[in-house]
Nucleic acid binder design. Structure first.
Lengths: 199, 199, 199, 199
DNA sequence: TATGAATGAGTCTTCATTCAT
DNA sequence: CATGAATGAAGACTCATTCAT
């Protein structure tokens, strides 16, 4: 997982995997019965856990839309903490056109659940709870763009001036806030909120 | 560019590039003087144009922060329309850890300009114009996650139920809105806005 | 035997043999103590039976040369009926230059007996009972070419037009006749012979 | 051709071919574009020549059946003199069930011409010119068994006692005679024939 | 400038063999 | 007796690279 997360599928050879595991390339082949099935195993035995972690728990009736979003974001960050190889793999090998794990991994996406989120948001939009320019059906994509993408690219943006000390927790708070109220932040009338990172 | 965008750098051979160009692999090698310098050329002669398109124009003093963001988003979408190979390449080969064009392309990022945006946002946050949970320094990353990422992954999410007819224009509007006010949408007191996609 | 007859020695792996036998490749190795000795066993425990069947029975004093030949041909066909794997193996792995069982199997050939047949024929030739252009010493080879070879290649020639219904019995009669009197058939003065395949 | 004739297709590696040709295995692959097409080339560029040599010349109206057979046998021996790799290859890789060149090479066999020979013989048999036990349709197979087979197996039978000095010419004469009149030789009434190998 | 021929290094894969159990 | 795990050696194949032309 580490190698694939770091270099991508195409650039990861069986020999490298074997070396990292302290075995011979022949064993890797013997064990997984060929490269295609090794990739199957990557998806079925590892990537699937991530999907389960994010989607499996019965969705408790959320108090509000914002809370529902925050929960989903929370689960993604949580899963990524446990399975840090997922964000880069997702970003490189699953999401984009021609990703080498795409076909294998797309089945993991609970299209139903995602559609459900879309329905929920579309209804909310009809009730005026959601901005008119929002596309409810691709809010899920935006969530990915605000969670998996920054998680996968920490290495780059951490070098941006002033970003060195931003933690994963900060990132989660940032994504949740951006998703809820955008840069504008909560309405002026909102009650005082707990300050983060007081230090 | 098309091949790299579609399959990634590692999976694109000089022979494929040559075939697509109607020349011999030997000529590709002769012309670019080796694979490393071919990748250099990809970055220097193509990817750089994208960066120029997004960042080069003198930043006219924006009327508001929201407008500044909308302009940046607009430029990205505009550049992506002209150079559709950029989003997948960015997502796969530049942004993530171990991206094969990362070292070469990172120099293109105008760290200064990005830092400037960060400064601007940090100041705005101090003035209370920006939500307290926002991290000004990585707003740029969020913008990427709301523009380049969905552009690079249209192939996947277009299959989500209800997302078939979402256009790039819709996507831009969605990203701009989300960035400005989040899902919550503009404050209640806001004046009526032009409806999108009336048909 | 079936696998070797069908694909040849070089193309038959220990794993295939094991699979067909319902055991593991490791057991095949354990049992035969390596590939060379597996091939030894093929020769010593199977192929040898064929040779025994053809040559072992005490050669009853034949009434005539023709009868002696018919007997030998009969024994070969008989053995091939019981051990149908032999003709292909003989043709591919024993007879030709570089056959993979050649060295092992050649010892099975009773050179003495074959030489005896040669002596017999040479004497007959000297007495004028055998055509002057016949080479007595390689009549045995011709017998092989008229028995083992067609038996090993039935799959091909059965597809020849009109050859579909030719049985092994027909083949034996054909070989015996050809050997005795060639295409010309028995002398005109010969007494009527029993017709074959009356149905 | 030499390697395949000597060891068979399965036991001949690209590396051996390369070594014999004084080039690298990579070149063999480059030149033939893979093993399957190397075998195609073997068949199309070499084996086909043999078939042409044997079958192509317009069949001059033969004076007799015996002459027709002698001509066919003569052509086979002639072709084998020029292309000595053919008999072993034919015997191992084309004729038997599971031969590795079988599918590729069977198209070379002029089924029509062979069927024609069959027709001719069948008619002759009806006229009583051919023995009743002969199967006209597989006389062609017998011819192969009396020509290609002994040619492919010289290495073995040359070691038979008394066979050391038998030449290819002797073999041809032997095969022709056996085919014409069997071991029995020409009818007693036949006119004197030229003696062979007077020395 | 352009290429066909050629290759070294490295890919996945196969397979007989080993060995602890 | 029997096997699963493991491997070395070798196989076909790939690809960037070289080079004479």
């Amino acid at each position: 997982m580490a190698l694939i997360a770091e270099r991508g599928v195409a650039a990861t050879t069986a020999a490298e995997i074997a070396a990292l595991a302290g075995v011979t390339p022949a064993l890797v082949h013997y064990y997984f019965r060929g490269r295609p099935r090794l990739l199957d195993a990557v998806v079925d035995e590892r990537l699937s856990r991530f999907a389960v972690h994010v989607f499996a728990p019965a969705p408790t009736r959320p108090a509000s839309l914002a809370e529902a979003m925050a929960t989903l974001v929370g689960r993604i960050f949580d899963a990524a903490r446990r399975m840090p190889w997922m964000p880069p793999i997702w970003i490189r090998e699953i999401a984009p056109e021609g990703g080498l794990l795409r076909k294998r991994a797309l089945a993991l996406l609970p299209t139903g659940a995602i559609g459900g989120v879309g329905d929920l948001l579309a209804a909310a939009q009809r009730r005026g709870e959601i901005g008119p320019d929002i596309e409810p059906r691709i809010v899920f994509v935006s969530i990915m763009g605000l969670t998996m993408f920054p998680l996968a690219t920490r290495g780059v943006w951490r070098r941006l001036p002033g970003a060195e000390r931003i933690t994963v927790g900060d990132l989660q708070r940032h994504a949740t806030a951006l998703l809820a109220t955008g840069l504008a932040g909560p309405r002026a009338s909102a009650h005082t909120r707990i300050r983060r990172r007081s230090g």
